[in-house]
Each structure stands twice: as C-alpha cells, then as structure tokens.
Amino acid sequence: MSTAHISARSPARRLPLHWLGILPFAAFVTLFLILPTMKIVVGAFQTPDGSFTLDNIRGLFTPSILAAYWISIKISVASALLGCLAGFAISAAVVFGGLPKGIRGPLLTFSGVASNFAGVPLAFAFLATLGPVGIVNVFLRSELGIDLRALGFNILSFWGLTITYLFFQIPLMILIITPALDGLKREWREAASILGATGFQYWRMVAFPILLPSILGTLALLFANAFGAVATAIALTGSSLSIVPILLFAQIRGDVLGNPHLGYALAFGMIVVTGVANAIYIWLRARSERWLK
C-alpha cells in the first residue's frame, strides 16, 4: 500500500523503490552465483598470498592437464553433435515422418524423464548394460560369440562416456527441437514446392536456416551439459579416466596437484571453455538470425 501511495505522489522517488523489489534476487545471485565464480576467476591469477601471477595459468600447460582438457572437450563435442543429430532425427521422424500421432506425447514425456536421469544412477544403468557383465556384453558373448572387450570397447573410455552421455543429451535435444519443428509452417513447404523446389532444396534453403539458431543454441547447451558432468563420470569410471571435472573434483577433495591455486586455474579453464562455446554460439546465432526480431 505505502509503495503505491508514494509512487503516485512523487515520481522522482519511484525508481529506487522499484529497484528494491528485486533486491533479494540480486543479493542471492550475487552471493551464490556471481561472487563464487568471480572468486575462481580472480584466484586463478593470484598467488596464495594474494599478489598477481600468471603461474597458475601456466601450470595448466602440462601434458597431463592439457590431455584432460582435450579428452573432455572431445567427449563434450562428440556427445553434443551426436545428441543433436540423433535427437533431430527422432524428433523429425515423429513430427514429419508420418508416424502414428500417439507416439508424440509419450516420447516427449519420456524425454523429460531421460534428460533428467543423469548422474550416478545413469552410470549404474550403463554399467549394467555395456559393462563387463552388462546385458549387451553377456548376450553378444554367449549368443553370438562376440567379445566387445576383445574388440577394444571399454565403457571406461571416450566412446563409453560419450554413449552414456547421449542418454541425457538426445532427450534434451528432442525437448528443445520438437517445438521448433512444429514452428515450421506448412505454407513454407508448400510455397517452396509450388515455386519448383525439391524436398531437399526446401530443407537446405528454408527449413534448415530457420532451425539453425535453435540447433546452435542446443549444441552450446549440450556441450556445457557434458563438459560439466561430474557425477556420471565419477560413478562410471571412478578416477580411471582423467577428464577435467574428475581432476578438479580430486583437486578440491585432496589437493592432488600440490598447489591450491592450480585448482582455481583448472576451474577457470572450465569457465573459459564453456564461455568460448557460448561465445561461438552467440556469434553464429547473430550471423544466422539477422532475420529475427
């Protein structure tokens, strides 16, 4: 009540009072999102006694840490790309493929569940499936005489992790891209067709460019999603696969690198990588989206 009275009486004092309304939110975000992140960024350039240094960053450029970043990026890129591709195919099959209408609802519901089914239990599910005594391995060995292990497949590897991550990446893509596919108007396809375009030309010149911003956004999101995934990786591999989140986890737990500030640098590197991924996304999106409001 008092706010309304004052704002009606004196416009000059309106602004500060309006801003008060988001103070709790601003305080929370500052304290528990911005400041902690800033602490990492600043810490990455500090010595333990607080003076400026580049040594921490330099410390990242050792073969083992670089290798960890590289495999992390590879897994994230692979699982994001494959997730986009498979999710797009499944979504397109349901939206355009002439499949029964009844499939759509259950698919979206299941995608909602599966995209949230990450972390420790997901790792268990894949161990029980593709692990040494998993259902697929056992089946292939006993029924077809194929030994995946002998063929070089190991769940605790680049491909093992990628395949596991796809379990939450594909559904996320489906959830995001299905509304976008629904947004493609029938008239666009018909207009293209009546102007002489083949189905392929329609997709290349009209549908794909229209979808591109959504696809790029999803790619960036899937990348960050995989890059920061700690729980799945730890539960799946213990610490046998050296990817950045596992390395950082071990560093926070017990300072395995011998320099507490190297941990800052490691975390800062993660922010930089996801930040770069998003910068690329924003740049590509700006280029592909000139036609949007």
């Binding site: 099959a93 493929g97 499949l99």
Partner: peptide
C-alpha cells in the same frame, strides 16, 4: 519416408530401453 522415420524411432527405442532393461 516412413522407413527412415521408423528407423530413427526404432534406434531411439533400442538405445533408451536397453540400459533400462539392463539395470
């Protein structure tokens, strides 16, 4: 067109049910 649509869906079903069946 229907073949690839069913193919994509089948792949999805297989990929998503196997781990659930496995666990």
């Amino acid at each position: 067109k229907k073949i690839w649509a069913w193919g994509a869906l089948l792949f999805g079903i297989l990929y998503f049910t196997l781990p659930l069946v496995g666990m």
